[in-house]
């Protein structure tokens, strides 16, 4: 409110400071909305009955339908990692480490991140625009007026489905990626089978797998929290309504969820290493 006066005659300095202040306030407001949204949605976990059917439907959408693209992503990620590391390791004469390196890179880092990115691109953007269109068509107002809890019947099933589906998809990326690395390392570059598989089994610890698992669970929560909230708060956050607003919200949701996902990645790695 206070900066409205200064807007009447904005000097360059004052104007810039106001702009910075405004974007800071916006950022804090958005963070607050996200947090409240997440907590409110999770609080509906304790209401009975739990909408299982809707969760199944959403796992189908987020998980099962993502399988083809996830398998492709995992395969090529594994192959290119194996190719790059083979080229690097051969300079030190330690290609026997290939299996360990590929598996560690995939399980700890690349698997969760690649899976998350593919899910943002495929299911996250679609979910955001679906929710934004529901807002646009007053469907949430209608649900409110019918005294039907939006968080419980619309948001929670999607969030829960994501938290279940993302780790499973990540595991698929890991295994397929290790397979891709096998194709490049063992079948094409002639690293010995024993060195690849044996090295992998010897090096990878339960801690590494656990780290990947924790990451993917958090990624699922972060991504879907962002895309759901971005769609849900369309009317507050977007300057334009209609199809253009939906498009903007979706773009912002994809960018923001990817950035928050990578930030979470760093924080989790820093804590667990």
């Amino acid at each position: 409110m206070a900066n409205d006066q200064s807007l009447e005659s904005p000097g360059v300095v004052v104007g810039t400071v106001c702009a910075i202040g405004r974007s800071a306030i916006n950022a804090v407001q958005q963070a607050g909305r996200l947090a409240m949204f997440f907590v409110t949605t999770l609080s509906r976990l304790f209401y009975w009955p739990f909408p299982f059917a809707e969760v199944i439907k959403q796992i189908h959408f987020i998980g099962a339908k993502s399988m083809p693209v996830i398998i492709m992503a995992g395969l090529f990620t594994g192959m290119v990692v194996a190719l790059q590391f083979y080229d690097a390791l051969i300079r030190f004469g330690s290609v026997d480490l290939l299996g360990s390196v590929v598996a560690l890179a995939l399980i700890r880092e690349l698997g969760p991140v690649m899976a998350a990115l593919m899910i943002i691109a495929r299911a996250g953007s679609a979910t955001c625009s679906e929710i934004a269109i529901m807002r646009n068509e007053q469907q949430f107002d209608a649900l409110d007026c019918m005294a039907i809890d939006v968080y419980r019947y619309v948001m929670l099933p999607r969030l829960v489905a994501a938290i279940i589906a993302v780790p499973l998809l990540t595991a698929v990326v890991d295994v397929v990626g290790i397979g891709g690395g096998y194709i490049v390392g063992v079948l094409i570059q002639d690293v010995s089978y024993g060195a690849y598989i044996g090295g992998m089994v010897d090096t990878v610890q339960w801690n590494d797998v656990r780290m990947g698992l924790i990451k993917s669970v958090l990624f699922g929560a972060v991504i879907f929290c962002v895309v759901l909230a971005k769609g849900f708060y369309l009317h507050i956050e977007q300057p334009v309504s209609g199809a253009e607003g939906v498009g903007r919200a979706t773009t912002e949701a994809v960018v923001l969820s990817a950035i928050l996902m990578l930030f979470t990645d760093y924080v989790v790695s820093a804590f667990l290493l």
Binding site: I59, A64, L168, A171, V172, D174, V204, W206, V209
Partner: peptide, 19 residues
């Protein structure tokens, strides 16, 4: 989907991760 995902996870955890 759940079966495949769980199988992949189990393979990672038990066979490779040595849990």
């Amino acid at each position: 989907f759940v079966l495949i995902g769980t199988a992949a996870l189990a393979y990672l955890a038990i066979d490779i991760g040595g849990l």
